[in-house]
Design a protein around this nucleic acid. Structure first.
Lengths: 358, 358
DNA sequence: TAGAATTGTGTAATCGGTTGCACTAATTAA
DNA sequence: TTAATTAGTGCAACCGATTACACAATTCTA
């Protein structure tokens, strides 16, 4: 049953030529006669020849495989980013190998080792939340393997990166809440050692400042937001309960995580608070489920597919300039606020409660 | 910057031995002296030696890479299945390369070619909805590459497979609706050329028969349920509208797709039908969003992670019995009905509206 | 028509690691 | 003491494709 694969040597034998001739014929080398090329092509088809890419990879030192490391692929954000990467790299003849770090530093390291081991031609990654020791990433760089980061990056790594303008996104979101009449806006903030959450908090503060609303530190809840979905949801419920016990209830929540926002919404609804009338809510990331909850959750679209495509493009650019000195590039993507029912206290004349156009 | 990797030859040179000795020392070959092994190990560490797995792959004819083809990875079902596969195969030293067919036959074929090209040691796949021509899958088999199917399988392929007992799942779901007092149960059925949807319809019919409820063909809506998420949702809304226009309204919907069920629910709610009092709803697959919609959707848990783990185990078994004749094996996994608010008309004494234990 | 250029193909090394066989030296058995 | 083992390495082929270089045959140039 297990027939052995045919090699260029098999073809060569049939035609009484050498493997090198066959190799050249298959690659349309100018010095090979058309007659030979035709003959090779016929035999190759007949024997169902498939080049052994491992041999090629060994010889050329390139595997035509691109490694992708994401914390998890079951979030719409990362799934879309992957599909963006795939769209761009497939055309260029690369296969993707997708690894999940589960946000564990140890697993991330293992993934990096695996990818380097199988000689990927590059790595596109989003850093695990736990990671503070960047030695594994530095190893990638020192091996000369192109590294591109997206979303969760780190400035101390001198590589190309694609990130979302989280500052602006937060600024828009909070401004929107203020324009809806909210004044005491709670912020579910992520851990501040992570760049994206720092930016989100900064945007929150900037919007308050613009509208001359004093910053109340009690309204900022800094917690770990990077957990598996069910877990963040549970945490969101807990934080919703914290809100309910406050003396002076906030009139809005701006959460740096969709799921935390939805968890809180559930608790508030269970206690008969009306959303958005009593408390308006805005999330972050436009996860699929945000349009299912009631009222639908206002949130931020970060264009993850676009992020993936740009990251992939950076990778292709980098491998194609291997000779010359390479200068890392950065892209900041402007997110969009998607206004839905959870934050729309004042019926808008221009926008429906459904999504803004993107 | 781009330092070249150290090879066993570099180590050999340092120690004035040959590469073969180093190779054996690294693999703890019994005929190599302990002294040499130690020396090799020291130098290897100092030079930061990493074996070139491509060379090994070429020599051994094994890549230690397992290919996985799924229609999409942003559905919880497939994401979980992948994580199950990963959990099992990682331990055995395999890397995963994940491809998405987007349910397109053409893309599926391209994926298969890519995987065969890079000489994966096996392929675990879930067949694209479009696929009727199985030649690409037969190619995998004829190449002697182990093939395991899960969820969307095809009986004409003589390979190991892991599927969910969709018949039983449907039977449970519909029985549950009947026990809740429903008599006119609409079924959103998938296309009947796909095995899983055929099974779901069969389970629906069996439950009706058991309770002596006559089958009304008008209550069966056979449509394409395999679309991207937003699209199914939209379709679900359309079908909800169809229901609203029926002379004799059904008192329940059993949908073979979570998203179609939720789409319909949205429309029904917009028209002020109460769920489950007026119309009870049950979905299929336990997608994450089913717990966000209100009321939470009763659905079926198919244990995708377990499916992935078993598929992976089948793969490992198959590669380890390469010599002897291999007999394909099948596993049928029993799903669980997760009863939630969308179908619970009669408050249960033993179960909360939340999930049954799993 | 001799020398130059071109065409078409073969030779052999290479990528990095693996492994059957051979060979020497040391150890053991008889 | 001699033959038989065993321990420890080296040699060289191999996995399959690629490619610099060599070389013969053919065609072109002047």
């Amino acid at each position: 049953m297990k027939q052995k694969k045919t090699t260029i040597h098999d073809i060569a034998k049939e035609l009484n030529v050498t493997a090198s001739t066959v190799s050249r014929a298959l690659k349309d080398h100018p010095r090979i006669s058309q007659a030979t090329k035709n003959a090779v092509s016929v035999i190759a088809k007949r024997l169902n020849y498939q080049p052994n890419s491992i041999a090629t990879a060994l010889r050329n030192g390139k595997s035509s495989i691109l490694g992708v490391i994401v914390p998890t692929s079951d979030r719409r954000f990362f799934a879309s980013a992957i599909s963006g990467i795939e769209a761009v790299t497939n055309k260029a003849g690369y296969s993707l190998i997708i690894c999940q770090s589960d946000d564990l530093h140890q697993k991330e390291n293992a993934n990096i080792d695996t990818l380097l081991n199988i000689q990927v031609d590059g790595i596109i990654a989003s850093i695990a939340k736990e990671t503070t020791d960047l030695s594994a990433y530095n190893k990638i760089i020192s091996r000369g393997v192109p590294l591109i980061l997206f979303d969760r990056t780190n400035d101390s790594l001198d590589v190309s990166a694609v990130v979302s303008n989280d500052y602006l996104a937060s600024y828009k979101a909070v401004s929107h809440l203020i324009e809806q009449g909210c004044r005491r806006i709670m912020h579910f903030a992520g851990q501040q050692h992570i760049e994206i959450y720092k930016e989100r908090l900064r945007g929150y503060k900037a919007a308050l400042e613009k509208y001359d609303i004093p910053l109340d530190p009690d309204l900022i809840l800094e917690r770990d937001l990077i957990l598996d979905t069910e877990h963040v949801l549970t945490k969101g419920r807990e934080w919703g309960k914290i809100i309910l016990e406050m003396d002076d209830l906030p009139d809005a929540i701006f959460s740096a995580s969709d799921f935390a926002a939805m968890g809180a919404m559930m608790v508030l609804k269970e206690h008969n608070y009306r959303i958005p009338q009593d408390i308006a809510v805005v999330g972050f990331s436009n996860d699929l489920s945000t349009s299912f909850i009631e009222p639908a959750l206002t949130t931020i679209d970060q264009y993850p597919k676009k992020m993936g495509m740009i990251a992939a493009k950076y990778f292709l650019d980098q491998v194609n300039t291997s000779g010359t000195t390479f200068t890392p590039r950065k892209t900041l993507i402007n997110p969009t606020l998607i206004v839905r029912g959870s934050s729309l206290k004042i019926p808008s004349k221009t926008k429906t409660p459904e999504e803004e156009t993107i």
